[in-house]
Simulated scan of single mutants.
Amino acid sequence: MMKWAEVIADKSLQDLPYKIELDRYGNILMSPASNRHGRLQVRIASLLERLLGGEAISECSIDTPEGVKVADVAWCSPEFLARHGYETPYSSAPEICVEIRSPSNSEEEIRFKVGLYLEQGAKEVWIVLETGSVRFFGPEGERSESSFPIDPRPELSH
Rank of each mutant, 00 (worst) to 15 (best):
Y117H: 09
E95G: 02
T88G: 04
E140M: 08
E109Q: 14
R135A: 09
G132S: 14
K123F: 01
P94L: 05
R101S: 12
P139I: 04
G132A: 05
E108M: 08
S91Y: 00
L116I: 04
R135W: 00
R135S: 12
E119C: 05
E124K: 02
S91R: 07
N105W: 06
Q120F: 02
F112I: 03
L129N: 13
S92W: 00
K113M: 15
E109K: 15
P89D: 01
A122D: 00
G141Q: 00
G115W: 07
G115A: 13
P139T: 02
E130G: 12
T88E: 05
S91H: 04
F137Y: 15
F137C: 02
G115H: 08
I127P: 04
E99A: 08
V134G: 09
W126Q: 10
E95D: 02
I100R: 13
Y117I: 05
Y117A: 08
E107C: 13
S102N: 12
E142Y: 01
F136M: 03
I100Q: 09
I110T: 13
S106H: 05
E95N: 11
V134E: 05
F136W: 09
W126M: 01
E95P: 02
K113P: 12
S92V: 00
W126C: 05
F136Y: 15
L116N: 01
E140R: 10
N105L: 11
E99V: 10
K113L: 14
E107Q: 15
L118R: 04
G121E: 13
R135E: 14
T88Q: 06
S104A: 12
W126I: 00
E95K: 11
F112N: 09
F137K: 08
R135C: 01
S106Y: 07
F136E: 03
G138E: 13
I127N: 03
F112M: 08
G121V: 10
R111L: 14
T88R: 10
Y117C: 10
S102Q: 12
K123L: 04
I110W: 06
E142H: 03
E109Y: 07
V128L: 04
E99S: 14
P94H: 06
Q120P: 01
S91K: 00
S91E: 07
